[in-house]
Write a protein that binds this DNA or RNA. Structure first.
Lengths: 212, 212, 212, 212
DNA sequence: GATGAATGAGACTTCATTCAT
DNA sequence: CATGAATGAAGTCTCATTCAT
């Protein structure tokens, strides 16, 4: 609304850098609090204190409390998109790209547990009444699509069984997200170590090979 | 509305309504609203209206709003325990019992989508800020334990590969819950049809058998 | 409203005895609870439970919760009136009748601590906003009047100094009630033993010096 | 309405209003309402309206409705302590200091009838059910102690009869508080004029007969 | 821009009172 | 008469949002 511009060296330099950096700081603070207390229990005051600014100042950067959750969702979705994009653009055998994808997803969230923790809230908010336009469903839809593509390539290559399709993509996404869920509920589970078992189970299956 | 005096076990109930039946009615109404709007957005008034009683009457059967969520959790946990118990007590080849378990879990929730929908809230409540003593983590812990037992039996039998253990149990639980999650976010996914792909992926794996 | 009468031996005997006995029971129960928890914190439910009847039944005997306090006030006022009447009608030296009065007041309340305890609530209710028509002020007014009469008689007799009047009556009433107050706040104070010090302080201070 | 930034002790107060001044304003408003309607009948809304602020603003300065009563108690107790301290530290004949004390107590409350009126509620709150930690009993205990000390000094001096002790102190405290009680119930009583009768009754009654 | 005091809508909860049985 | 389940008005308290400084 107010566009205080500062003229430096003859070029118009909107204070955008500062503004957006400050916005990011606040968002990061908000995510930390969401992770700690959950969205429902998080007060604007908590966020302001965490960001070490005044309560009113939060509203200079975000329209509303809900907007903070939306922004957190955006951060999560952006990261997801990046990871998925990389898998899509990657080269090499599709099953290896699948492996990388699974490892990346788990590593990304293990590295940033704060963001991971708000997953639960995002799942809840992704449903029903929520006035928020957080499109969680489409995040998972894209996720399934990418994996289905990889499986299709693998099928074309002959590295996976015939008849593998959408549903199997859903199962793989499910295995990853379900392991994350369990880790969120039980932080002692070694999340990064679960990548290999996930791939073993999904790719190799549990049944013993007859002649192996 | 009032369902007269009710005979239970041959003795006349002291008063007019069957307390526990009425309690269940209100809980069912609450679960319907939770499913529709989520716990955070559900007002006592909503529950009362759904149950077609006065707001104050809810408090005759539940101590607080939180107690409603606790009760919903109990209903969910009780059902989980039943399903798991059945798998534990079952006879027959362990991998078949695993199959039954997976199918039962999905069928149970598909049959009662209302209860399934509050899963998201229960997951959230299972973490952090919640003062509620909803022990979601232990639900999943037991779940993993039962599956790990089945895998151990199968390993003893020689029907699964050696080295299969806790982590693989976590992956199977994850696959089931992760598929449920996706269904909750995207109700068009055919949840019951996912049981077979889950079992295929987990038991058989995706990779094509060399000599098949 | 309902006047269920029972014919016994040919005479109409309204069930008044029972009815009024029951009323007294409830009132006594109410007074016990008021004494224990104070009027503000007393619930109709508490009274019903104490009287061992159903909550709704309280309303068969009292119009409202406030009516219970009114009735308790009436009981207190009636007792006060009795004590005062006795002092008024008594014969003998006025200062001795004053002594009896003081001893009676303290003894009456010491004997029935329950009623004494609600004095505090009655004092509060005797003021301001209270919709209740509890006329505490007139209880004390009558009290002062009776004592002033005794003092006037004593003055006429020459047993107290001249100039003793209304204000001194107020002081004597005050001394008694003020001691009661302290006892209510600090039950270890020996309330009945305070009668003599009160009389010593007050009467000896008023008695004309013999030879002066 | 907002009274700008205020300089206290040379340092700029961090924000705009002086928190403690505003707190006092609200407390004063609360005391006015308590005096008018009694604590039990006073709603937060009443206090807010009296202070001409929003309902929620009360909670910026007091944790709860009960905290308002506690604060009012503190104001009363602080004043009591001051009056008592003065009597304790005073010099001069003990019976004169007793006279000053009685006059001070009556004058202090006569001057601030608002605070006096809540005495009734404080007495009630000093008992039983109240969760509040208002220690009315100890106020009166200290009061008795100070007067007992004065009497002991007077006894040592020979200005009061032998055998005068704790109980007589209780009677004097009672006379003062009992007169206040009557004034509260019957505001037409001339409270300040009662100091002399109280002293006449009590002091002359205690003074040793010169030639006896 | 920054702040935090102020606000008041709205949620929970209590409990006096009613009334069908 | 007796009862206690049901009710909803009313009260406390919270907190997102606004706005004067």
């Amino acid at each position: 609304m107010t566009d205080q511009s500062v003229i430096i060296g003859g070029s118009v330099t909107p204070k955008r850098v500062d503004r957006s950096a400050r916005r990011e700081e606040i968002l990061a603070a908000a995510v930390r609090v969401f992770a700690r207390k959950g969205f429902a229990a998080t007060r604007i005051d908590d966020v302001a204190r965490e960001a070490d600014i005044g309560k009113g100042s939060v509203y200079l950067y975000f329209d509303s409390r809900d907007a903070l959750l939306s922004a957190a969702f955006e951060a999560f979705a952006a990261r997801s998109r990046t990871v998925l994009q990389r898998a899509r653009e990657g080269t090499g055998p599709p099953l290896e790209r699948l492996g990388s994808l699974v490892r990346s997803v788990l590593a990304a969230l293990a590295e940033d547990p704060e963001l991971a923790h708000i997953l639960l809230d995002l799942w809840s908010s992704g449903r029903a009444q929520s006035q928020l336009p957080l499109d969680m469903p489409s995040v998972y839809s894209e996720y399934r699509t990418v994996i289905a593509e990889l499986l299709r390539e693998a099928e074309a290559e002959g590295t996976v069984r015939q008849g593998v399709g959408q549903h199997h993509a859903t199962v793989i996404v499910g295995a990853v997200e379900g392991c994350l869920l369990q880790w969120l509920l039980e932080p002692r589970l070694p999340i990064t170590e679960l990548a290999e078992p996930i791939l073993e189970v999904c790719v190799e299956g549990l049944r013993r090979r007859k002649e192996a």
